[in-house]
């Protein structure tokens, strides 16, 4: 004879049902508030991040861009964004925080070393196009920049 006693499930009350129904909207509000904080403190574009700022401002990815600069002995140039770097660059463009810019810089260092090209420092810049009130005159403005020294990153041989 099975003497185990199973404890009854708690009744699914109206109160519980309502509380669970409020959870997704509460999550929306929390994420949206965090998004507003990030736009103010890390340069996150208002178009992303779950804050519903799309179609509210020109400060979106369409008017931001990333520039990459490499320096080494006998070398100082701006690089085009290679296909392998496009995803990282797009993320940094949307959220130009220190961590995101450093990831791009490290990827540039790794790529340059793979190609056998010298690299000492990498500078990652995120720019945006500001349209003046009234005239709509367009001006490029530097949003964030980050300089990375390649000696901080070991190469594939562990040097």
């Amino acid at each position: 004879m099975d003497t185990r006693v199973s404890s009854p499930e708690p009744p699914y009350t109206v109160r519980l049902s309502t509380a669970l129904a409020l959870a997704p909207p509460a999550l929306l509000v929390l994420v949206a508030c965090v998004q507003i904080f990030l736009t103010r403190n890390t340069g996150l574009t208002p178009w992303k991040g779950g804050g519903f700022g799309m179609f509210a401002t020109n400060d979106g990815n369409q008017f931001r861009y990333v520039r990459l600069f490499v320096d080494a002995p006998d070398r100082s140039e701006e690089l085009e964004i290679a296909p392998s770097l496009e995803d990282l660059a797009a993320r940094a463009q949307a959220l130009p925080g220190a961590a995101q810019l450093e990831r791009v810089a490290r990827a540039v260092v790794a790529r340059e070393r793979r190609k056998g090209r010298p690299v000492e420092t990498v500078r990652v810049e995120v720019w945006w196009i500001d349209f003046a009130r009234g005239t709509l005159k367009a001006t490029d403005r530097l949003l964030r920049q980050h300089q990375f020294h390649a000696y901080r990153q070991m190469d594939s041989a562990g040097r």
């Binding site: 929306l28 949206a32 507003i36 736009t39 208002p46 804050g51 519903f52 700022g53 799309m54 179609f55 509210a56 401002t57 020109n58 400060d59 349209f131 009130r133």
Partner: peptide, 15 residues
């Protein structure tokens, strides 16, 4: 969702 969309347009966006 619309509350935050309106907040962005009316209060937070400069343009």
């Amino acid at each position: 969702a619309f509350f935050f969309a309106v907040s962005w347009k009316a209060l937070l966006s400069p343009d």
